[in-house]
Design a protein around this nucleic acid. Structure first.
Lengths: 346, 346
DNA sequence: GCGGCTTATGCAAGCGCTTACATGAAAGCT
DNA sequence: AGCTTTCATGTAAGCGCTTGCATAAGCCGC
């Protein structure tokens, strides 16, 4: 309850009868100070309830022991999980995590990056490759290590996924199952290269089999269950509804599944639904969701390690692509109505 | 790409032909400097690409413009959402958010609190009232505003929910429906007073109607869907399975619902299931989940505002209890088998 | 027993800002 | 015109720590 000003290094030094330099060393390089002195210092520290002041420390040493992360939102399992993993890894190495979310608003992102750089972080991670010119300038001229995550860009080291491949993987699976009429529910693609890549991947896979995915068949919805439901409803209201819909992520897919269930559309009987991300819920939905697994926890951990390594002066690869993988469950099967036999005409 | 050392206030002052004090003022109290000077300074700042250094600023001014939040985990929608709200509110006021997650490990929490205090935060929020003595000492003697969230404790200002009431609300509802045989799936209660309070609330409500909830009927499971599934499976394997199970939170409830569905137990026909939290998914599950709504976004926002206000020197209430509310959906009805008529014997 | 080496510690110069206080110029008053 | 205010700016003293360098022991071998 004592509210007096914090004790300073000076106070400790005085109480212990040594110089401030010694106290400082006792704190950061205990191997350099004699055992007995160390004991006296520790005692003084304990007695004064001394806690070193980060600001002074940062100013004098040039390191803040803080790493920044700028993400679109924490209110999405995918980012929350990666940040959680990152934080755990950092804390284990004596670093702290400063987070900012910008809600997919590029200007807010720029502000966040600027604020972090100003505030002082020893390293920084940002999500994706869609940034304002201003943000890019800040990022590429920053005097601290910066890393991109989730996707790639030649301008900066990056640790991410091949989002386009995720789209291709899942589309190919549907194609192999015999589907020919597709719909897609994507998250908003504005300021979101991941979402755009996934759509592009799906398009590319279909195009490779001679199928076009007109933009009228891809609806953009907010990244929520409700968004997924609305998206599916819209798609199924079309004159010729799709037999398969790929969702930009599992949240949207879960929403689509709920909507199908609510409106009596049998999945996978009458409609196949697939997602991307492989959230925990995907495995538990009815039917369990076929999706593409993205190792987001590992992403967070890898980002943290990469940054930590660079801070130690170790060179790091410019690009690390984390493996993704199709996970087949039961929400997608061959289309009921269309001639599966038409597949692979020989 | 220029990697030379950052420009300092000095450099700017020199370029603009003014003193460092003036530049500093131009930055923080522009109203105090003449327009023309201001222009010259801004120009110099832009030309040098100057970004003020937070460390020096913090040291000189004693404020870090950073607020810390220590939560159990970000990998749970409930915390992620509150943190997101907090961050948004803070960013809008020029503050940044430092987060740490401790995974329900008290010692890690203590370390996190200590690290934040050392690092320098202008204010701090922690979750719940279960803390190590060490942590309490840190918290109560901190020289910066601290606030508890989610639950309450007389030792510190708090903004939270009445978790016990949440338990009572939901249990009373089930009781009113006519249930007499209960089971409960709780999250781990170790280092988690919220979970304990909820169980206690349920117990109290039942006791008030003469029903005992033996600890053999409450199973503790990890806060995941899988945990909920396992919990339900365990409960239903009992000699006399419950007709209603209340889950410590919606994630567990969703898991329980999935398990019921997978094992052919009709909900709410054969079994009523309820949760607490009111996550987005609760409304979309089949059947939609009866639960208790906790305004977590508002919690985050309120915490941020409370702290901000105290930093401005405004007095704030010692205790703010956010309203919670029963939301009745379709996962709970009168028990099929038991005599609903037995209810309220007159 | 003396030069030279290794330790353990102290000295003091900053790190890059903020902010009283001082200064000087312009403006207002009588 | 002389005096007080007011306003814009400069001066300089820190903020609490880190760290390169200097210093002072203690130790070795010859």
């Amino acid at each position: 309850m004592n509210r007096k000003a914090r004790a300073t290094l000076q106070d400790v030094a005085q109480l212990a009868g040594v110089s401030t330099a010694t106290v400082s060393r006792a704190l950061s390089r205990p191997d350099l100070v004699q055992e007995e002195t160390l004991a006296r210092v520790s005692d003084a520290i304990a007695r004064l309830n001394y806690v070193p002041g980060g600001a002074a420390r940062a100013l004098a040493s040039g390191k803040t022991l803080t790493i920044g992360a700028v993400v679109p939102t924490l209110d999405h399992a995918i980012f929350a999980r990666a940040i959680q993993a990152m934080q755990t890894e950092l804390a284990g190495n004596g670093y702290q995590l400063l987070v900012a979310a910008h809600d997919y608003a590029p200007a807010q992102e720029a502000a966040a990056v600027r604020a972090m750089l100003a505030r002082g972080v020893d390293a920084l991670m940002v999500v994706g490759a869609d940034h304002l010119e201003e943000t890019w300038a800040l990022l590429t001229t920053a005097s601290v290590p910066v890393v991109l995550s989730w996707s790639f860009d030649a301008r900066l080291p990056a640790i991410g996924f091949d989002n386009e491949k995720a789209g291709r993987l899942i589309a190919d699976h549907l194609l192999d199952l015999g589907h020919r009429r597709f719909g897609m529910i994507s998250g908003f693609t504005h300021a979101n290269d991941r979402a755009r890549s996934r759509v592009a991947g799906v398009r590319a896979a279909l195009a490779a089999r001679g199928i076009e995915l007109p933009s009228s068949c891809v609806v953009e919805a907010p990244f929520t269950l409700a968004g997924g439901r609305a998206g599916l409803a819209e798609l199924m209201a079309r004159a010729t509804p799709p037999t398969a819909v790929v969702c930009g992520n599992d949240l949207l897919a879960a929403g689509a599944l709920f909507e199908a269930q609510a409106s009596g559309i049998a999945v996978p009987g009458a409609l196949s639904v697939v997602g991307i991300d492989n959230l925990e819920i995907a495995a538990h939905l009815a039917p369990p969701l076929t999706t593409v697994h993205l190792p987001t926890t590992e992403l967070g951990r890898t980002v943290a390690r990469h940054l930590l390594a660079r801070l130690r002066g170790e060179a790091q690869p410019q690009r690390v692509e984390l493996p993704i993988e199709l996970v087949i469950r039961r929400s997608a099967t061959a289309p009921a109505t269309s001639p599966a036999l038409a597949r692979e005409p020989s």
